[in-house]
Simulated scan of single mutants.
Amino acid sequence: MDISTLEIADSTVLHLKGADGQLLYDGPDRKPVRVRLHSPGSAAFADIETKQTARILKRLDDNDGKRTAMSAEERLEQTAEDLADATIEFENLSDGNKTGRALSLAIYGNRKLGFIANQVSKHLADWGNSKAASPAA
C-alpha cells in the first residue's frame, strides 16, 4: 500500500447550518453558505497549534505554573482567533462591510452565533472531512 494515497487535502469546505440544523443558503438562487478552511494536516493549521501551545505555556508561566481557568470572554476571544486563523474564506455570507479576518472574527466572536464556531471546530476535529480528491484511476 502506498501510504501517501491517504494524505488529506490542505483545505476543506463546510456547508454551514443554522442553529436549527438546516443547511444555510443565500438569496433566491439558494447559493450555499460555506466556509473554506485550512485542514488539520496543513502547515497553516500547524501554526495555529503552535500558537495554542505557546498561549498555554505563557498562561502557566504568568501564574507560577498553576493551572487557572480562562474567563468566558478570554475563551471566546481565543476561540475566535484560532478559528479565524483556520478560515480561508466565507462564501455567500456577510456581516456589514466586513471581509477577510474581520469577518471571521465578527462571526466566531459573536456568542449568539456560537453554533457556527461549534460546527467549524467539529468539522476540523474530524480529519475525514479533509480527504484529498481521489486519484484518477
Rank of each mutant, 00 (worst) to 15 (best):
A133C: 04
L83F: 05
T87W: 05
D95T: 14
D62Y: 10
D29G: 11
F45Q: 10
G21P: 04
G21W: 09
I107Q: 04
L83A: 06
A9R: 01
L76I: 07
E74L: 08
A132H: 07
S4H: 08
A19H: 09
K112D: 14
W127H: 12
K66R: 11
T50K: 15
R111I: 13
A46E: 06
T99R: 13
S104R: 03
R36M: 09
D126Y: 02
K58R: 14
D95Q: 15
F90A: 01
N92C: 12
L16N: 01
F115V: 04
R36C: 10
K31R: 13
L23A: 09
F45M: 12
A117C: 05
T12Y: 00
D20L: 06
G109F: 03
K98I: 03
D10W: 04
N129C: 05
L93M: 11
N110E: 11
K31N: 11
D62F: 10
K17L: 08
G96Y: 06
A117I: 04
E73T: 06
A84Y: 06
A9M: 00
R111E: 14
V33N: 02
A125V: 00
K51G: 07
E89D: 07
A54F: 00
A117E: 06
Y25C: 03
P28D: 13
S104K: 00
I107T: 07
R67G: 14
G41R: 06
I8Y: 07
A44K: 13
D85G: 09
R75T: 11
S121H: 00
K17W: 02
L23N: 03
A102C: 05
S104D: 04
R34A: 05
D29A: 15
N63Q: 10
L14W: 03
M1F: 12
N97P: 06
E89Q: 07
T50Y: 11
R36F: 09
L37K: 05
L76H: 13
I88R: 00
G41P: 11
D85S: 13
K31H: 09
G128K: 12
I3A: 14
T53K: 15
L113W: 09
T99F: 08
D64L: 14
P135S: 08
K112T: 13
A44Q: 12
G41V: 11
N110Y: 03
W127F: 14
I8F: 10
K122W: 10
E81F: 12
L37T: 05
S94P: 02
E73P: 02
T87A: 03
G114S: 01
K66D: 13
F115A: 01
A9D: 10
T87M: 00
L113N: 08
K31S: 08
T5R: 13
V35C: 04
W127I: 15
S42V: 03
G18P: 01
I88Y: 01
E91D: 12
I48C: 02
Q78H: 15
V13M: 12
D64R: 15
A9E: 07
L24G: 04
T68C: 10
N118V: 12
A137H: 12
D10F: 00
S104M: 04
I88T: 00
M1A: 15
Y25M: 08
E91I: 10
P28C: 06
K31L: 11
F45E: 07
D95P: 09
A136H: 15
A69S: 14
A102M: 00
E73M: 02
L113A: 05
